[in-house]
């Protein structure tokens, strides 16, 4: 599919070089890079896929901490927050689910404000504590759920294993992003959340949702043990939560007055722009699978 769209884009750029498609080719090249890296990470098996998703967490967290207001005194707090990444992925490596799920929401949540209080700077304390934790929750805890999917056992989740579930999650989430965009571009009329994201429409959202449910129904038999009912439910969950992840990150960017979170991925913006919907879909899809099989 990627090959076809790259060729189409090339042909189109060649036929009509004046049309504003400048964004499309770099965007597609970035897609090639992403797809290659994900495939390599999944084929290499443990613990290499952990390194890959750990790197994604790191890049996203770095973008987040670079775009929000921070306090000079909190440099060491941010340093501690970065240290949470290898620790969080270590819990996945040793398959310690109970600690994986509470380490950031409870222990980092308690630890960082303690360290901040000991430093004695109270100006902007609540804002600093909250934004630091927000970055950890989204970029580390939520993203690390993708990696935890990867270590689910073959005996529980079926012959394609956890890697199959990761593949399904990524295909459906990114497919949903693209489908919502395409449906919105072609049919979009009624704005859904004009204050947050003026380009999002009901037509885009519903068309994307329907496409995602269809994709889930078709792909799930190859990548998971889902029954057709479960596949449809997974499609609905990812379609809706992917949309929400997208608009939540849009709201943050609007609050900060920026358009993209970075320039790491040419044509896409930053890493955070690409994984915004995964922040919502990954934990929700994970807990759906976990509930079904464990």
């Amino acid at each position: 599919m990627l090959a076809v769209s790259t060729i189409l884009a090339k042909v189109f750029a060649w036929l009509k070089p004046e049309r504003a498609l400048a964004d499309l080719l770099p965007r597609l090249y970035s897609w090639w890079a992403i797809v290659t890296l994900v495939t390599v990470a999944l084929v290499l098996q443990q613990p290499y896929s952990l390194y890959f998703f750990g790197l994604v967490s790191f890049l996203a967290l770095k973008e987040f901490y670079s775009m929000i207001p921070t306090r000079r005194v909190d440099r060491s707090i941010l340093f501690w927050a970065y240290l949470a990444i290898p620790i969080q992925y270590y819990w996945i490596h040793i398959k310690w689910y109970d600690v994986f799920i509470i380490f950031i929401p409870i222990y980092m949540f308690l630890l960082l404000p303690m360290r901040m209080a000991l430093m004695g700077a109270t100006y902007g304390f609540l804002r600093a504590a909250s934004t630091t934790q927000w970055g950890l929750m989204t970029c580390v805890l939520c993203i690390s759920h993708i990696a935890y999917l990867g270590i689910l056992d073959v005996e529980h989740v079926g012959p394609s294993g956890g890697a199959g579930l990761i593949m399904l999650l990524l295909l459906l989430t990114e497919g949903n992003d693209i489908a919502q965009y395409v449906w919105g571009k072609t049919l979009g009329r009624t704005k859904i959340l004009p204050k947050v994201s003026p380009t999002k429409t009901w037509e885009g959202f519903l068309g994307g949702l329907a496409t995602t449910v269809g994709m889930s129904y078709l792909l799930a038999p190859y990548l998971s043990l889902f029954t057709s009912g479960q596949a449809i439910l997974a499609g609905v969950l990812i379609g809706v939560s992917g949309f929400i992840g997208d608009v939540v990150m849009s709201a943050i960017k609007r609050d900060l007055g920026i358009k993209d979170t970075g320039t790491t991925l040419p044509g896409h913006g930053g890493v955070l722009d690409r994984v915004d919907s995964l922040i919502y879909t990954a934990p929700i899809f994970f807990h759906f699978c976990f509930y079904l099989y464990y």
């Binding site: 790191f58 770095k62 973008e63 901490y65 670079s66 921070t70 440099r75 060491s76 941010l78 340093f79 970065y82 970075g262």
Partner: peptide, 18 residues
């Protein structure tokens, strides 16, 4: 912009910033 946040004068630890 940013190097001064990542490693300012007189600080020993490096903190990643874009």
């Amino acid at each position: 912009h940013g190097c001064g946040k990542a490693l300012p004068r007189g600080e020993g630890i490096f903190v990643p910033f874009f």
